[in-house]
Design a binder for these strands. Structure first.
Length: 279
DNA sequence: CTCTTTCAATCGC
DNA sequence: GGCGATTGAAAGA
């Protein structure tokens, strides 16, 4: 709790109001500080990423050793969705999604992804540790996290916007990365689709490198007009785990008489949406 | 009922 | 290796 010593102070150009205390005297020669202090003695350096309708902040918020430790724990402890929850239909054909995916969050929240309603699994200590650091560095509290694991550079995610309809109005989305660095691309909605190359005055794509221990904060209204993707990178051979934190306001329907909703996992199939055979 | 949005692989350059 | 264009059924507004 006091490991990542911070104190409140307004700092221009920062996404949050919090900033770590500067501890310059710690690096005296001959008296190395305890490893736990050394490993967290980092002040995040924020980079603001802005364009027309795009407002993001990026910083590495974990030291190398913290990130190494967290990455190992994530690899050991996470169990990703499988079966119907990891398949998607595109242009009439069914595919395994080109990555692994799992959701954790407060009980009774739901999350819709490509027509499938996911119930998040309960929080794990390593996830709460990450969430707490994000809160310390941004001032925002999140109640849900969608985790994507990219085995190597062939795993990817196509262009999409994060659906803000289910999020609390105006709340940002925090994307935290561990493992291999990967390119990340924003494209404006008007720059997509056929013929867009010829259009004058179009907005150029914005490319970022998401690093081990890095946090990308996507502020409103970024996700309204800008799409983002994690493109294939054939030369990347190592895995990356990404955690997208959000503040959801969608609790499972019911609540009419305060009855706790039964965990629907998988949700009762109201439609035939998960079956490829029937046609 | 109509309209909009969404996903990933494949092919050509 | 990378990028743009192309492929449609299903869901939700």
């Amino acid at each position: 709790m006091d490991k990542f010593a911070i104190k409140k102070r307004k700092v221009p150009g920062k996404p949050g109001e919090l900033r770590e205390r500067r501890g310059g005297r710690r690096r005296r020669t001959g008296t190395p500080p305890p490893l736990t202090l050394l490993s967290t003695d980092v002040r995040p350096v924020w980079r603001h990423v802005a364009a027309e309708g795009l407002d993001c902040d990026y910083a590495v918020i974990f030291t190398r050793s913290e990130a190494d430790d967290i990455f190992l724990r994530l690899e050991e402890e996470l169990e990703y969705f499988s079966g119907d929850l990891s398949r998607v239909q595109v242009y009439g054909k069914w595919y395994q999604i080109p990555r692994k995916q799992v959701a954790h969050g407060d009980p009774r929240l739901t999350y819709k992804y490509s027509g499938v309603t996911l119930s998040p699994k309960p929080w794990l200590p390593v996830l709460e540790r990450i969430r707490e650091r994000v809160r310390e560095t941004t001032g925002h509290v999140f109640n849900f996290v969608l985790i994507n694991r990219y085995q190597d550079g062939k795993d990817h995610i196509g262009e999409h916007r994060d659906d803000e309809r289910e999020l609390e109005q105006g709340s940002p989305i925090a994307s935290v990365s561990f493992g291999a660095s990967r390119d990340f691309v924003f494209r404006h909605g008007s720059a997509r689709g056929g013929g867009s190359r010829r259009r004058q005055g179009r907005l150029e794509p914005i490319k970022l490198l998401l690093e081990h221990g890095g946090l990308l904060l996507m502020n409103h209204p970024t996700n309204v007009h800008w799409y983002h993707s994690l493109p294939v990178r054939k030369r990347v051979l190592a895995p990356r785990v990404n955690l997208t934190f959000a503040r959801s306001c969608v609790s499972a329907r019911i609540d009419r008489d305060g009855r706790p909703p039964l965990q629907s996992f998988p949700p009762p199939a109201r439609t035939k949406s998960l079956h490829s055979g029937q046609r």
